[in-house]
């Protein structure tokens, strides 16, 4: 890790931040398709808001800003938020939008109340907790980067190992279920992986905006490739680049990092949506006749996972 940081043509603190944010973006980009291709992007939003109470609770338990414990707390409450959304839908018959709205509210209000109650209790060392809302990479040290890299690498390894299962599941959950992969296992696995990506990013990007770092790279990559392997790789690259560039830029301009990273990644996605060679808006406008004549051109280009569009209905 050290050689990578020192080899960058940046001052040491910036280099640490750049490498750390790149790792975060890489993991988020690689895992984002798990949410996007399955029409679960807003589910990711509830989870990313769900990290906030965990961060604060982790702080309360540790009594100090102990990063691993705070991230553990974030992971637990994010997973709890995911469970709550599913529970509301399955057991109480809530509609998905209501379930997400309520869970998002529950998570966020809990986080805010804890945060403000703690702030007013005058606990020293808590002053930086509000950074977890919009992200603050400054103050990241090499050990944090190492933690991110190790946890992220585990998640990526899991994705690679289960790639075939996940591909089948993302493409056709029914088929996967019949083929012997229980749906709940796939759900659980992808939820846990998403939680990992969100938790790693919450400090740098912030709980409010973390979902965009999952979604934007995946949307950009989706425009450029139809193969899942290429999509995950490309998405990881977009995420990593936006993460590193955004964190450094934000540091120099003294802005919160989350919005900068999110806007960078979103710009890439917007450019891809507009100018992608085959699926881009421009490409479609240029061949209106073909588009009008053939229905197949709209949602399902050959070989593309058709699940992407299904969430909209």
């Amino acid at each position: 890790m050290n050689w990578l940081i020192t080899s960058l043509p940046l001052p040491y603190p910036e280099a640490v931040v750049a490498v750390g944010a790149a790792a975060i973006g890489l993991v988020a980009g690689a895992l984002g398709p798990l949410a996007v291709l399955r029409g679960r992007s807003m589910f990711g939003d509830a989870m990313s808001h769900g990290t906030l109470p965990g961060v604060v609770l982790g702080f309360v338990v540790a009594g100090t800003k102990h990063l691993p414990l705070m991230l553990l707390g974030a992971g637990l409450t994010a997973a709890l938020a995911a469970l709550a959304v599913i529970g509301l839908e399955r057991c109480a018959g809530s509609r998905p939008d209501v379930a997400i709205g309520v869970v998002l509210s529950a998570a966020f209000t809990t986080g805010i109340v804890l945060l403000t109650a703690l702030a007013s209790s005058g606990n020293a060392g808590q002053s930086g907790l509000a950074d977890y809302l919009f992200g603050q990479p400054a103050g990241m040290v090499e050990r944090d980067v190492l933690l991110t890299a190790v946890v992220g690498a585990c998640a990526l390894l899991a994705v690679t190992a289960c790639f075939r299962v996940l591909r089948t599941a993302a493409f056709d959950p029914g088929f996967a279920a019949v083929a012997g992969v229980p749906r709940w296992a796939v759900e659980a696995a992808s939820t846990v992986l998403l939680a990992v990506a969100i938790v790693l990013g919450v400090r740098t990007v912030g709980a409010v905006l973390m979902v965009a770092l999952l979604v934007a790279p995946a949307v950009a990559a989706r425009q450029l490739t139809t193969r899942l392997g290429g999509l995950v790789t490309l998405s990881a690259l977009v995420g990593g680049t936006s993460g590193a560039a955004g964190a450094v830029l934000a540091g120099r301009a003294e802005l919160p990092a989350g919005p900068v990273i999110v806007l960078l990644a979103t710009s890439v996605a917007v450019l891809a949506v507009l100018f992608a060679p085959r699926r881009g808006v421009l490409a479609r406008v240029r061949r209106p006749v073909a588009a009008a004549e053939s229905r197949s051109s709209a949602p399902g280009e050959a070989g593309a996972p058709p699940r992407e569009a299904s969430g909209a209905r």
């Binding site: 996007v36 409010v208 965009a212 995946a218 802005l255 989350g258 919005p259 999110v262 949506v273 992407e308």
Partner: peptide, 29 residues
């Protein structure tokens, strides 16, 4: 979304956080 170019909830999780980011940057800047 009706035009079918961005027909998924991904678009929602993409567009509105981006707008919000713009606002947050404006506020802090």
């Amino acid at each position: 979304r009706r035009s079918g170019i961005v027909a998924s909830d991904a678009a929602i999780a993409l567009v509105f956080p981006a707008l919000f980011s713009l606002g947050v940057l404006g506020v802090s800047r």
